[in-house]
């Protein structure tokens, strides 16, 4: 189903409850009665078109009217991406850590194995942190600077210098596959870990891992399919403008 402005916000969640996390990131709280997507977005000062694109891309992997989404400002996109970073670090990762911790505590027969998982996830957490940190410190500011230069008529040299030291191409090339390790962890738990007695916890952990992986995939998709092409286009135009001078 493609979500549109006039659909009830409640129905968006009924259709796919994963959208809850998207709502969360836009700062939209539950309890909106029968209000439509449009109304709820207005009330929360959310750009409704941007919301629709993100939520549709989230629900349906194939849905990606790239051209449409390209019209949004870079700031809107990086703000959203920034919020997904916060969501990982403040919510998802601690949740998973707690689950693993609980498994360690409640486990008598194979504590050492669970401790291994814990260490693995801990390393992963660090990797994820480095990854998002790099985006926040280098990539996002770069994209915003490019947008600013693109929008202003006069091109000054500083942005050209900036483009000489960094480009979105570099980001794309070094954008590593951050979900790979999650897939490994999933496989280890499903296929190889001697099952601890508490299958409830184990299932819960797996569920959370699937969830995080899906979310990170979606996040990367927005970066690679929206942010990168958009910036690359802007870079080209800025370079051209400068060459003309």
């Amino acid at each position: 189903m493609i979500i549109t402005k006039n659909i009830k916000m409640a129905d968006v969640i009924h259709t796919n409850y994963f959208t809850l996390s998207v709502l969360n990131r836009f700062g939209i709280e539950l309890g909106f009665g029968d209000k439509s997507v449009d109304e709820v977005c207005k009330k929360n000062n959310v750009d409704v078109d941007f919301f629709l694109e993100i939520v549709n891309a989230f629900v349906d992997k194939d849905y990606f009217p790239k051209k449409h989404l390209q019209t949004f400002s870079v700031k809107l996109i990086t703000d959203y991406l920034q919020k997904t970073h916060d969501y990982y670090h403040k919510l998802k990762v601690p949740e998973i850590e707690n689950l693993i911790e609980e498994m360690v505590d409640s486990c008598y027969t194979q504590k050492e194995n669970i401790v291994l998982l814990k260490k693995f996830f801990n390393d992963y957490k660090q990797e994820l942190l480095n990854h998002t940190h790099r985006e926040e410190k280098i990539v996002f500011p770069y994209t915003l600077a490019i947008e600013k230069a693109y929008n202003s008529e006069e091109s000054d040299n500083s942005v050209i210098e900036l483009m000489e030291t960094y480009s979105i191409e570099i980001f794309q090339n070094e954008h590593d596959n951050i979900e790979e390790k999650l897939l490994d962890l999933r496989n280890i738990i499903i296929k190889y870990l001697p099952q601890p007695k508490n299958s409830r916890l184990c299932n819960k952990l797996l569920y959370e891992l699937f969830n995080l992986e899906q979310d990170i995939n979606d996040h990367s998709r927005i970066e690679e399919k929206v942010l990168v092409p958009k910036i690359r286009e802007m870079e080209k135009i800025i370079t051209k403008r400068f060459a003309k001078k």
């Binding site: 194995n113 291994l116 998982l117 693995f120 390393d123 992963y124 790979e180 390790k181 897939l183 490994d184 962890l185 496989n187 280890i188 296929k191 190889y192 870990l193 001697p194």
Partner: peptide, 14 residues
């Protein structure tokens, strides 16, 4: 079905 070095390490220990 395991790709990364840390993942393979856990498999090897298990």
């Amino acid at each position: 079905g395991i790709k990364t070095v840390p993942g393979l390490t856990i498999y090897a220990i298990l």
